[in-house]
Design a protein around this nucleic acid. Sequence first.
DNA 1: ATGCAAATGATAATCGTTCTTATTTGCATT
DNA 2: AATGCAAATAAGAACGATTATCATTTGCAT
Lengths: 141, 141
Amino acid sequence: MHQPDHLKNAGLKSTLPRLKVLNLFETSTERHMSAEDVYKILLNGGEDVGLATVYRVLTQFEQAGLLVRQHFENGKSVFELNKGDHHDHIVCLQCGHVEEFYDKAIEARQEKVTAELGFAIREHSLHIYADCINKKCPRKP
Amino acid sequence: MHQPDHLKNAGLKSTLPRLKVLNLFETSTERHMSAEDVYKILLNGGEDVGLATVYRVLTQFEQAGLLVRQHFENGKSVFELNKGDHHDHIVCLQCGHVEEFYDKAIEARQEKVTAELGFAIREHSLHIYADCINKKCPRKP
DNA sequence: ATGCAAATGATAATCGTTCTTATTTGCATT
DNA sequence: AATGCAAATAAGAACGATTATCATTTGCAT
Ligand SMILES: [Mn+2]
Ligand SMILES: [Mn+2]
Ligand SMILES: [Zn+2]
Ligand SMILES: [Zn+2]
């Protein structure tokens, strides 16, 4: 789907580390990954990159609009491929599984409430923390 | 409003640092303050406490239900007096001003959406980032 | 093939927060 | 009011996530 061109278009040279990181996001089953996640997965896959480079590249991809950054409550930034949409997140408190959702009614009410209070809305984050009733919830630490 | 008894009731000895911190939250015009905020305000007011103590006390107050912790996007924890309610936040991107709101419709939709996806909702955070149209928005750095 | 700006990666530094530990304090008991 | 002691404090070390520094390497236009 994404090709090296995407990097060029974003004004980024298509270097090995950047291609590795982009490829990981395109092929991984995990949509939401932290810098540490990316670093470890690449290392385990025999691809070695520097941790500092991973951080740098993730930020560049965010600025280029390739990735979107999320701030969950565990203190670390999590990134995901930019699908061009907007969605909110449900995070399982037991296994960390992340589910995405979009609710038109919620979005509309946010606009309304914010406008009524005299603000011009720019962005928002709605994070729901829950227990997934999934029988296979693996209770990841 | 709160008295030393509140500390005792929470199983906390009424020590000087704890009384200072509690009093600050009760009298400050700023409802939402970080550990660093509390520490600096007390110091400027001639009350000296250790920064580590501020962190410890804030966490204890949170556990005792006296304070509520918020995670905004700047990476630092922010605390506010527990009014016993639930509310969400609008943060001005220009001046940092925090406005509180509660919208029954949003809360209801969250329950519904989450249940439909097979989760049992525990908590959530909704943070709206906006520009306040306030003429006196002081554009704090 | 050559040159060079841009990118990398090892490491140091920073920031918010927590931990460690010697000292002090609240407070119940004489 | 003096004593005893568990609990709390404060200074600084330690920590985890992230960013900055800078010598070396790489992509890529010539
Ligand atoms: Mn997502
Ligand atoms: Mn609030
Ligand atoms: Zn789960
Ligand atoms: Zn403002």
